[in-house]
Design a protein around this nucleic acid. Structure first.
Length: 787
DNA sequence: CGTACTAGTCTTTTT
DNA sequence: GACTAGTACG
């Protein structure tokens, strides 16, 4: 009995076909990850391949981590030599070694969307591009798409130079790249593109990696873009042992440049490819699977396949329609609570999926009211939050003085009286001499144009220099804490009376925790640059831990690759999902991508799937009236416990009113959930006829909104991981001390509590410390101990 | 130079 | 509805 006996025949074939190109078409829940990990084991165990020669690439760190873990389990000794990582991490690792061959410094920094925008702003100013006509974001998107297609500024110019905007973008692209290079920075797309460039220009480096990676595996292949495809192709050209795993029905990242042709045309690029289809689903009940199949069948141009299962029939799919989104949220939270009370579920078995991040708000409110622990994935990346970026900018400045963006971000933070004019003058000085902004700062007293302001720059430079010298003998944790304290950043926050100061402090604390965890993971002292690198490449989904018994709220996109016993798909309305954008688009392919997203959503469910929608929903401050999603209608009514009722198109008038208040009033708290649904129309009453006329006439979407969900804060049930704020104040009684008590603070020593003011998020505590004097701090962060 | 207010903006989805 | 960038003013 070997570990391979647990695989079905197809899976075995996929595992054992180790030589040459292999395309594994792995339907949802068909044991794809098992195949990949067993394949690694097989290569090492049976085929005698050295772990060192194996490369496995995924999209997210979470997926990479899981694979690593499972490979470690099966393979045991030597497994750590297998290179398992994401596209981006792989490229960073390669570039750190060799990017000097492209004229960059190996010590580069990685820019996120925020940094990019900052750079683009400067670029537009310099090129006198009117950002009202042509927005920074638009230009950056154009550049990003170009990079996904491996188009450099020169080529872009050739292709688009004749066009008015195209010409401007081409110039901006060129300037943008130059600025990045000057700052010794790469953006996300550069990581892939520069690696490809490196391979194409340096045969020696390429040959080295080709020789190393004799067996290559790529997960989620349907989501690769042209650049990633090229990267893989180059690497695999050495031995042609390339195994890609994917599902064309789950390709949902076109907007990010994913090219579905990569998987559809695999056999054209590799005619000798062996194709294995995994069609047995081990995850979902028949009901769920039938629904998924029914929906996806409406797409054209798919690879032919049919998922089947020998699992039980299962329950019918629940469908509930509500008057308002409030009632929808109420129902979902109530349903989870009910099931939990009955002992049918653990919170961790449940996930609520929705199309847009903004939809999480109402759900969160309800979950808090019901007292259900939850985590929200996505929204604003933790590392993109202002306070986190501030602290990271300090660390980046300490790490790499050439990152002008980071230096400028913190030079007047907290306030040091250094204003825009001074910064401009220093920049001019730097430009003249072609030195970095930071190096110019060091010569502040040489800069004639800034006059007396030079005095303010000196202490800043001295401080940074002193941090730098401390990196020698400080641990990362000590360094970060030192930065927080010495710069006065934390103090300013603690004394701030801003509404969200407590949340921000909490986030900083969370960052410190991450630093500690990062250091604990490795044996030798961790370098600052390694930490910054890791942090630059994490996605929100990476931070989901399996152990927490909490309901997960996330977008359909984030849910790919996950599975839950109970899935709620919220907001099943035409105009929300499929989104208004795709419905109105002339490109029929867009709705197909949306349908794939629905397929992904449905197939996340193991046993129990609930679809909900609301007749009325507030989006960006305006009320929309949307019909039931066409995807619900594409599910045979037999599979649903309630039938979608559709008003005749002419009755579905679209109007708007400022109804937030009214809806709130109407949505009685804890009211019973579903309205009785109208009797089902016969399903044969042509969903297609319906869909055809469905062009939602001017559902009033005003451009706007896109709000990030609530700021991160303390979930009353919180782990502090990707957690959003609740409205619960910390009850003063729970603090363990009261006014007049003597307390101890980790940094300030002992003191007396003068005042405790319960705040909206966290209590504010005023303490007079014996040594440090009076401080006003947030109880959650101060961690005061009664003495 | 810093702050307080106002006006305009918002890719659905993210490595 | 909310956030942010830009501007007017102290």
């Amino acid at each position: 009995m070997s570990i391979y006996d647990t695989l079905n025949d197809r899976q075995k074939q996929a595992v054992m076909q180790i030589d040459g190109p292999v395309l594994i078409l792995a339907g949802a829940g068909s044991g794809k990850t098992r195949v990949l990990t067993h394949r690694v084991a097989y290569l090492i165990d049976k085929a005698g391949v050295a772990p060192y020669h194996i490369l496995a690439i995924t999209f997210t760190n979470k997926a990479a981590g899981e694979m690593r873990e499972r490979v470690d389990q099966i393979v045991g000794f030597g497994a750590e030599q297998v290179w398992v990582s994401t596209f981006h991490s792989t490229c960073v690792r390669i570039l750190r070694r060799y990017i000097d061959r492209l004229g960059y410094d190996n010590h580069f920094t990685i820019y996120d969307a925020d940094d990019q925008k900052g750079i683009m702003k400067e670029v537009c100013k310099k090129l006198q591009i009117d950002t009202k006509m042509l927005k920074e974001r638009t230009i950056l998107n154009a550049i990003s798409s170009a990079k996904d297609e491996l188009i450099d500024p020169q080529e872009y110019e050739m292709q688009n130079g004749f066009d008015y905007n195209g010409g401007k973008i081409a110039k901006a692209y060129r300037e943008y790249q130059e600025t990045l290079k000057k700052n010794n920075a790469l953006d996300f797309d550069d990581l892939i593109m520069k690696t490809v460039e490196l391979f194409k220009t340096d045969a020696q480096v390429l040959a080295g990696y080709q020789d190393r990676f004799r067996y290559i595996m790529v997960d989620e292949y349907q989501d690769t873009n042209t650049a990633q495809f090229e990267l893989i192709r180059l690497l695999a050209d050495g031995h042609r042992n390339l195994c890609v795993v994917g599902d064309d029905d789950q390709s949902i990242y076109k907007f990010r440049g994913a090219n579905i042709r990569n998987i559809l045309d695999f056999e054209k690029v590799y005619p000798e490819a062996c194709v294995v289809k995994l069609e047995q689903n081990y995850r979902s009940t028949k009901m769920v699977l039938d629904a998924a199949n029914a929906v996806i069948q409406n797409n054209t141009g798919r690879k032919d396949k049919a998922l089947w299962t020998d699992k039980t029939e299962g329950e019918r799919i629940h469908f509930r329609q509500f008057d308002t989104a409030y009632e929808e949220a109420e129902y979902i939270a109530g349903d989870v609570a009910k099931k939990k009370r009955k002992g049918q579920v653990s919170y961790g078995d449940c996930a609520v999926l929705y199309r847009t991040n903004a939809q999480s708000r109402l759900l969160e409110e309800r979950f808090i009211m019901e007292g259900i622990p939850y985590d929200v994935i996505g929204g604003t990346n933790f590392y993109a939050r202002r306070e986190i970026k501030d602290v990271l900018a300090y660390l980046k400045t300490i790490d790499n003085g050439r990152d002008d963006v980071a230096v400028k971000r913190i030079i007047n933070l907290p306030r040091r009286g250094i204003g825009a004019t001074t910064i401009l003058r220093v920049q001019e000085y730097a430009d003249e001499r072609e030195i970095s902004f930071y190096d110019a700062l060091r010569e502040a007293d040489q800069i004639m144009t800034i006059g007396r302001s030079a005095v303010k720059l000196k202490p800043f430079v001295t401080m940074i220099q002193s941090f730098r010298s401390k990196t020698e003998f400080f641990s990362l944790e000590e360094l970060v804490k030192d930065v927080l304290e010495t710069t006065g950043y934390l103090k300013e926050l603690e004394e701030s009376d801003e509404e969200d100061a407590a949340d921000r402090i909490e986030n900083i604390q969370e960052l410190v925790n991450k630093v500690v965890a990062f250091e604990a993971e490795r044996d030798e002292p961790a370098a600052l640059s390694e930490f910054l690198e890791e942090v630059a490449l994490v996605a929100d989904i990476d931070r989901v831990e399996g152990e927490n018994d909490r309901v997960l709220l996330m977008t359909l996109h984030s849910a790919k690759g996950l599975e839950f016993k109970h899935i709620y798909l919220a907001g099943m309305e035409d105009g929300v999902f499929p989104s208004y954008m795709t419905i109105t688009s002339d490109d029929p392919m867009e709705i197909e991508e949306e349908r794939r997203l629905a397929y992904v959503g449905i197939t996340r469910a193991r046993e129990d799937l609930t679809l909900t929608c609301a007749k009325q929903r507030m989006i960006r401050g305006e009320t929309q009236y949307n019909p039931v999603s066409r995807f619900v209608r594409e599910i045979p009514p037999l599979l649903l416990d309630n039938k979608p009722f559709s008003p005749k198109p002419r009755e579905r008038e679209v109007y708007q009113e400022d109804s937030r208040e009214q809806s709130r009033l109407r949505a009685k708290p804890f009211a019973a959930a579903a309205r009785p649904l109208a009797p089902a129309k016969p399903y044969a009453a042509s969903p297609s006829a319906y869909t055809a006329r469905e062009k939602p006439k001017a559902v009033p979407i005003r451009r706007g909104g896109g709000k990030a969900p609530l700021t991160v804060g303390t979930n009353p049930f919180g782990t502090g991981n990707a957690v959003k704020s609740s409205a619960e104040p910390v009850p003063a009684g729970r603090l363990g001390y009261a006014e007049g008590d003597r307390v101890r603070h980790a940094r300030y020593g002992e003191g007396t509590v003068m005042k405790i003011e319960p705040g909206p998020r966290d209590s504010q505590v005023t303490v007079v410390f014996d040594e440090a004097g009076q401080k006003i701090m947030y109880a959650g962060f101060a961690k005061l101990q009664k003495v």
